[in-house]
Lab assay of single mutants.
Amino acid sequence: MASQGTKRSYEQMETDGERQNATEIRASVGKMIGGIGRFYIQMCTELKLSDYEGRLIQNSLTIERMVLSAFDERRNKYLEEHPSAGKDPKKTGGPIYRRVNGKWMRELILYDKEEIRRIWRQANNGDDATAGLTHMMIWHSNLNDATYQRTRALVRTGMDPRMCSLMQGSTLPRRSGAAGAAVKGVGTMVMELVRMIKRGINDRNFWRGENGRKTRIAYERMCNILKGKFQTAAQKAMMDQVRESRNPGNAEFEDLTFLARSALILRGSVAHKSCLPACVYGPAVASGYDFEREGYSLVGIDPFRLLQNSQVYSLIRPNENPAHKSQLVWMACHSAAFEDLRVLSFIKGTKVLPRGKLSTRGVQIASNENMETMESSTLELRSRYWAIRTRSGGNTNQQRASAGQISIQPTFSVQRNLPFDRTTIMAAFNGNTEGRTSDMRTEIIRMMESARPEDVSFQGRGVFELSDEKAASPIVPSFDMSNEGSYFFGDNAEEYDN
């Protein structure tokens, strides 16, 4: 783990906690998980779902989305002020799938948001429990990260689609708070800032007046979040320049895209947490497990152990491969979309394939898809080993990566060399080191050039047997250095459309 220093740990961010010791953190995270579980059980009762239907990941996603929508204050306010045809701002819903006479049927349900809020609060001892809501947002974000390569979004903001390893959390809503900021990748933060800068260039009043003052505060806050992700002084200094700019424009845009590229080699610290679907927490609570009393951590053995003992089902389209669908969801559960496939294969105990080789589309089923041909199958979400999630980018030494994705962002704290394609990355730096950030740029390029592919990161860190909950005997895996390590390699994943 990167030293926490003055930073709060993510469990504290996750639970809005002030400084807590490890036991208190485990208890408050457990409380959050228990609340999600209780809410899910109650919703299944309301909807009269069978046990099997309640364990269907598509039903879980609909129920999670309903509660997130019920608590989305800004959108609710907007919907009330701008009524649109056929949208009731006070209601929320989605597809629920039921097994009827041996076939899967889709039923569109509609609930009062007020009623959903009441059920959620009741499951969370009367609190709004925003930490639990954020947790579900991060699960949705991790699922998107594993399912889609955001080529269009990258290109629109002047970045290269091969930089997708920097895009963790790119679909997280803005209201996801400190826990959300911690899991956002460098590219995601750059993209958010670039969008602001572009608006400022096109709209003279963007930075002016009372609204402009708020915009400015948001801009500086985002700059500080991004600065905190960088691990070298030169990158941090460049972020200070971007933040202090009187009138952010093209120079800042250039600096930010430069920094994003540099992060492929001088990786930023991005938190990883295993956020599971509500249909995993519900049955665990129903079986009598007391998360608050037992304590829970999002970055240790607990999620692995929970998945070892969970039964989750998914709808499967006619030509999809259930094992591939399982891999997709497994990666999402562990926030591992940008991790090295060699490491993932070792931990999972079966070969993890790149996205383009998977015969599976996303987990969600569109409303126009034919239910007649839908089957369902068990998702295999178990693992051979477990490993500690990392909050750091690993040290800054790398190795060759593949054509589709030119770097990785480690999820697990496991000893290995970190793949990246130096030639491709360095070719993108057209040696432009003039301007006010020239000395920093020169320094950053120097550090990137001296990074050695064969150097090892996370020295001495290994994986653990599932029986080793105290992480007492690390097993340090050895990897084939020459092997392909990137998930979005030469990829044809669908595009994420909101």
Rank of each mutant, 00 (worst) to 15 (best):
M1R: 13
S3V: 04
T6A: 11
K7E: 10
R8Q: 10
Q12L: 09
T15Q: 01
T15I: 06
D16A: 03
G17Y: 00
E18T: 11
R19E: 02
R19Y: 00
Q20G: 03
Q20A: 07
N21L: 08
E24I: 14
I25D: 01
R26N: 01
A27N: 05
V29D: 09
M32R: 03
M32K: 11
M32I: 10
G34Q: 05
G34D: 11
G35Y: 08
I36D: 04
R38C: 10
R38A: 07
F39A: 08
I41R: 07
Q42R: 09
M43K: 12
M43L: 13
E46P: 00
L47V: 14
K48V: 12
D51W: 01
D51Q: 12
Y52R: 08
E53L: 04
E53S: 03
G54H: 01
I57N: 09
Q58L: 07
Q58R: 07
I63F: 15
E64C: 03
R65F: 12
R65V: 07
M66P: 04
M66G: 03
V67A: 12
S69W: 04
S69L: 10
A70N: 03
F71A: 07
F71N: 10
D72F: 07
D72N: 12
E73V: 12
R75N: 07
K77F: 10
Y78D: 11
L79K: 10
E80D: 04
H82R: 10
P83E: 05
A85Q: 11
K87L: 02
K87D: 03
K90G: 14
K91C: 02
G93I: 02
G93P: 03
G93E: 12
R98G: 07
R98Y: 03
R99E: 04
R99C: 14
V100I: 12
N101T: 14
N101G: 15
K103T: 12
M105T: 09
M105S: 00
R106Y: 03
I109F: 12
I109G: 00
L110V: 15
L110H: 12
D112I: 02
K113E: 12
R117Y: 14
I119Y: 09
I119N: 11
W120L: 09
W120T: 04
R121E: 01
A123W: 02
A123S: 13
N125R: 05
G126V: 14
D127R: 08
D128N: 08
D128L: 11
A129H: 11
A131L: 00
A131M: 15
L133N: 02
W139F: 12
W139N: 03
H140M: 05
H140Q: 14
S141Y: 09
N142I: 08
N142A: 06
L143F: 12
N144Q: 14
D145S: 06
A146E: 08
Q149H: 12
T151S: 15
R152H: 05
A153N: 02
L154K: 01
G158V: 08
M159G: 02
M159P: 00
D160K: 05
D160N: 08
S165H: 01
M167C: 06
Q168N: 09
G169S: 14
S170Y: 08
T171K: 04
T171N: 15
T171F: 01
L172W: 05
P173G: 06
R174A: 03
R175N: 02
R175T: 11
R175Y: 02
G177P: 00
A179R: 00
A182N: 09
K184N: 07
V186L: 14
G187H: 02
T188M: 11
M189Y: 00
V190A: 15
V190C: 06
M191I: 14
L193D: 02
R195P: 05
R195C: 06
G200S: 14
D203V: 06
R204M: 06
R204W: 10
N205P: 01
W207C: 09
W207P: 02
E210S: 05
E210G: 08
K214A: 09
K214D: 01
R216C: 14
I217L: 11
A218M: 12
A218F: 15
E220S: 05
E220T: 13
R221F: 09
M222R: 09
C223T: 06
C223G: 08
N224A: 03
I225S: 13
K229M: 06
F230E: 05
T232L: 03
T232R: 14
A233M: 06
K236V: 01
A237N: 05
M238C: 10
M239Y: 01
M239C: 06
D240S: 07
D240E: 12
Q241Y: 06
R243Q: 09
E244Y: 01
E244T: 08
E244G: 13
R246C: 06
P248T: 11
G249T: 00
G249N: 10
F253T: 06
E254R: 00
T257N: 15
F258T: 09
L259D: 07
A260W: 02
R261I: 07
I265S: 04
K273C: 03
K273H: 07
S274W: 06
S274P: 06
S274R: 04
C275P: 08
A278C: 10
V280A: 12
V280E: 07
Y281L: 12
Y281V: 09
G282C: 09
P283L: 07
P283W: 09
A284N: 00
G288F: 04
E294D: 15
G295A: 11
I301Q: 10
D302E: 14
P303C: 07
P303D: 06
F304N: 11
R305Q: 05
L306W: 12
Q308H: 14
S310A: 01
N321L: 13
P322N: 01
A323L: 08
H324M: 04
S326I: 08
S326P: 00
S326V: 06
Q327E: 13
W330I: 07
A332S: 15
H334Y: 13
S335A: 15
A336D: 13
A337W: 07
F338A: 00
E339C: 06
D340Q: 06
L341V: 08
L341D: 01
R342V: 00
S345Y: 07
S345K: 04
F346K: 14
K348R: 15
G349Q: 07
V352K: 05
V352R: 00
L353K: 14
R355F: 04
G356I: 06
G356F: 06
S359Q: 09
T360L: 10
T360V: 13
R361S: 11
G362Y: 08
V363F: 09
V363H: 04
V363Q: 02
V363T: 12
I365M: 11
I365W: 07
A366I: 02
S367P: 10
S367Y: 11
E369V: 11
N370K: 08
M371G: 04
S376G: 13
S377E: 02
E380D: 12
E380L: 01
L381I: 10
R382Q: 02
S383M: 04
W386K: 04
A387V: 07
I388N: 04
T390K: 06
R391N: 05
G393Q: 02
Q398A: 15
Q398R: 14
R400T: 14
A401D: 02
S402C: 15
A403L: 08
G404I: 03
S407M: 04
S413M: 10
R416E: 02
R416V: 05
L418K: 02
L418V: 15
P419N: 00
P419D: 02
F420I: 10
D421T: 05
R422Q: 11
T423E: 00
I425R: 01
I425D: 01
I425K: 01
I425C: 12
A427F: 03
A427K: 05
A427N: 12
A427W: 04
F429R: 00
F429N: 01
N432H: 12
R436G: 10
R436D: 02
T437M: 07
S438M: 05
S438T: 13
R441V: 08
T442S: 15
T442L: 13
I444F: 11
I445R: 02
M447E: 12
M447H: 01
M448L: 14
M448P: 02
E449H: 05
S450H: 09
R452M: 06
D455G: 04
V456R: 10
V456P: 00
S457K: 07
F458V: 06
F458G: 02
Q459F: 14
G460Y: 03
G460L: 05
V463Y: 04
F464I: 12
E465S: 00
D468N: 12
A471G: 13
A471S: 09
I475R: 07
I475G: 01
S478W: 14
F479T: 14
N483M: 14
E484W: 13
G485R: 07
Y487C: 12
Y487Q: 04
F489Q: 03
G490I: 02
D491R: 03
A493S: 09
A493Y: 12
D497F: 12
N498C: 04
